[in-house]
Design a protein around this nucleic acid. Structure first.
Lengths: 235, 235
DNA sequence: TGAAGTGGCATCCTCTTGA
DNA sequence: TCAAGAGGATGCCACTTCA
């Protein structure tokens, strides 16, 4: 669980309306992250971009961005070390956080539930309809166009995959167990024919099969969810 | 560091002759692990095979594979593993020495240095010459054909990549910093034209460019290392 | 010299929680 | 319901060890 996932938690950014102190504290870090953008160190076997293999020197720098999406953030947000960017400036940081209100740790730390906007859900669904997994660059791009953090996009896809899997395993034991997931799923990255997809807000994505969008009709149907999304008035 | 990498450590298996108590202790786990073989769940954005997305229940089996590059194959194809037929066994030697004495924990835990055979190095080099990264299925296949553990193959490639990078960065700051690594590197897995490669002991590998092997001449030259490998008497 | 060890970080998955 | 949190697994990289 150390380097797990919750790194850049910074929940909502713009889109969602709910937030707690934690969120506020995390906000700043998000911005910086994108700047470095060295992401994608990991995609080892992929085709993807990642051409540079940046020869970064020390690991300490890692914190900031390094890899993809989240990175570093986690550690501090849970307390431990390196006080969150924000105020951390002063060495006394740790102390500061504590001092705030006597027992900061003791607080319950309410769990917030971000509610994505229709537009966000729509685009996420549409993208998911094309591919079940996103490369870090695609994720970054999508997140950027949706005003969400990459972590949110990642988590959304994770939960979405889970949901689809659950649906498939439950309401039908019949044909194809869960192939639905792998099929269009694992993004087939064929370097070469990337096409500008309006779904990803201009991000380059290998077009699998065009999703009706924008469509002449005011509604779009997503095969997976079986839901219709109104294109009008979608926030 | 929890879930880091040391997982299937099982050091030498067959090829190497040295090992310590630790190794012995680890042996058992190795087997089990491969059985589940879940590896390859990771490759997100790649192309690869991975068609199935088996709906495995618990995490113990975790395995799965999912996405891109590596994925899928692994689990079943390896099936497990079964320890390599060979002789890994002989061992007695080292093992004996360690375990013998009473305080096993207290011991210094001598670090052993396995020496791969010429044949193994040759095949590893040849494979590396084709691609810098292996998918888990390829790794499993190669490991199996070389009588090495997958971890050994993985580590070898890791160290090899590092070595190449070092060489490139040092003896020439000139052109292309480290592109050499990315180039043929990130295996460009284009599902479709897999070709049976004798280099991987019959494993399916996307052929990038043929490496002279077997060759009419008794020696083979590896562009990366700049070394020649004699094909005769290579253990 | 080079196979391993160590530590850090990232992604994925499964299960669980709580607004 | 569903975005997140938590925990476990595996991979890669940078460095370091030490036969």
């Amino acid at each position: 669980m150390p380097g797990n996932m919750s790194k850049e938690d910074a929940p909502s950014r713009g889109a969602s309306l709910t937030f707690t102190i934690d969120h506020i504290l995390n906000l700043k870090q998000r911005g910086g992250q994108e700047l470095y953008a060295s992401k994608e160190r990991r995609g080892k076997g992929c085709t993807e971009d990642l051409q540079a293999w940046d020869v970064r020197r020390r690991r300490d720098s890692t914190s900031e961005e390094t890899a993809q999406t989240k990175t570093a953030a986690r550690r501090e947000d849970r307390g431990e070390n390196t006080p969150p960017p924000t105020a951390c400036a002063s060495p006394g940081a740790a102390a500061a956080s504590e001092q705030k209100d006597a027992e900061p740790k003791v607080q319950v730390k309410k769990k917030t539930r971000t509610i994505f906007s229709k537009r966000q859900i729509f685009q996420l669904e549409a993208t998911f309809d094309m591919k079940r997994y996103l490369s870090s660059s695609e994720r970054a791009c999508l997140a950027n166009s949706l005003q969400l953090t990459e972590t949110q996009v990642k988590i959304w896809f994770q939960n979405r995959r889970n949901k689809l899997k659950r649906q498939l395993t439950t309401d039908m034991e019949g044909p194809a167990p869960a192939e639905h997931l792998s099929e269009a799923g694992k993004n087939v990255q064929l370097p070469g024919f990337y096409k500008d997809s309006s779904l990803l807000g201009g991000c380059l994505l290998p077009m699998q099969f065009p999703v009706v969008y924008p469509s002449p009709a005011p509604y779009v149907f997503f095969s997976n969810t079986g839901k219709y999304f109104g294109l009008l008035g979608a926030e």
